[in-house]
Simulated scan of single mutants.
Amino acid sequence: MNELPPSVTLEELSEENLRPLLDAAVADADPFEVIAAVDGPPGWTPQRRHAFVEFHRGRALHPTRPSERTFVVTVDGEAIGAARLEPRGNDLEAGIWIGRSHRGRGIGSIVTAQLRRLAAETVACRITATTTPGNIAARRLIDTGLRARVHVDGDAVTGISDLT
């Protein structure tokens, strides 16, 4: 029996859905997959939880100068990850993380298509994304989901896709 595709939505990040996003990260992602390095023992320490919240409050939720649009990725109404579009000159840089238990189900492809559609509604000329050579799933999303030209430079794989 074929499983129906999940109902995947992108909800603009807000103070109301920031806590469910943190809960999803703590339950289903390594801190180093979703935030910059914070010293301390492994796992989601109180300092890393605080850093996660403050990171988003300082970027997408900044009251006067948000530096990016961040979206909570939901499946059937449950927060399972995040996606972002960050202006970089005339381009938008895309980023996605999906909780481990939700990977491999096609959610990343759906989110990538939604990000590309949102980016096309802006004045940006291109959408870009960067990953590491070993992240095969992200490379596939960059190649097929963003329909990007891929460039490998040392430890960085960058995809660039025209929006016009």
Rank of each mutant, 00 (worst) to 15 (best):
N90V: 07
S67E: 03
T74V: 13
D162S: 13
D155Y: 02
R149M: 03
A83I: 11
A124I: 08
T132Y: 04
L22Y: 03
L85M: 13
R65G: 03
G108E: 02
L61G: 08
D153H: 15
N17C: 08
G104W: 11
R100V: 09
A51V: 08
A24I: 04
A79R: 06
G108S: 06
G58D: 04
F71S: 04
I107R: 01
R19T: 14
R147Q: 08
A113W: 01
V150C: 06
F55S: 10
V150Q: 02
F55L: 13
P133M: 04
R147A: 07
A156L: 12
I107C: 05
A124L: 02
E121Q: 14
T158D: 02
E3F: 07
R59S: 15
V123Q: 12
I107S: 01
I160N: 04
I35P: 00
R116V: 14
T45H: 06
V53K: 06
L10T: 07
S14E: 11
G106K: 07
E78P: 01
E3S: 14
E11F: 03
H50S: 14
W97V: 04
S14L: 05
A138S: 15
N2V: 14
T158E: 03
V111P: 03
P6L: 13
F55Q: 12
D28S: 10
V73G: 02
L92Y: 00
A36T: 13
A82S: 15
D143K: 15
R19P: 05
G159M: 01
I98M: 05
P42V: 07
T122L: 06
R140V: 14
F52V: 13
E78L: 13
G134H: 09
N17D: 05
T64M: 04
G58W: 07
A25W: 01
R48C: 08
A137Q: 07
L22T: 11
F55A: 10
G58Q: 08
I80N: 01
V34R: 03
L163Q: 09
I142Y: 00
E54M: 10
P46I: 13
T164W: 11
I98C: 04
D91V: 05
R149G: 03
L13K: 07
S109H: 13
A137L: 05
E15R: 13
E16C: 07
S14P: 08
V72G: 01
A79T: 11
D162P: 14
L21C: 08
H56G: 04
P31I: 12
L4K: 12
G58K: 07
I80L: 08
H151P: 00
T112L: 04
V38M: 09
G77K: 10
E16Y: 00
R126Y: 06
R88P: 00
V150Y: 02
R139P: 09
I110C: 09
G95V: 04
A124R: 02
T64K: 05
P41Y: 00
T144M: 10
G99W: 00
P87W: 02
T64Y: 01
A82C: 14
V73E: 01
V152M: 11
A51C: 04
L61C: 08
R84K: 15
P133R: 09
M1Q: 11
V150E: 02
F32N: 15
I80Y: 02
L85S: 06
P133T: 13
A82V: 13
A25T: 07
N17L: 08
A29S: 15
S67W: 00
E33N: 14
E11T: 09
E12N: 11
L61H: 08
L10E: 00
A138I: 12
L22V: 09
P42D: 10
R116I: 09
I127D: 01
R126N: 15
G106I: 09
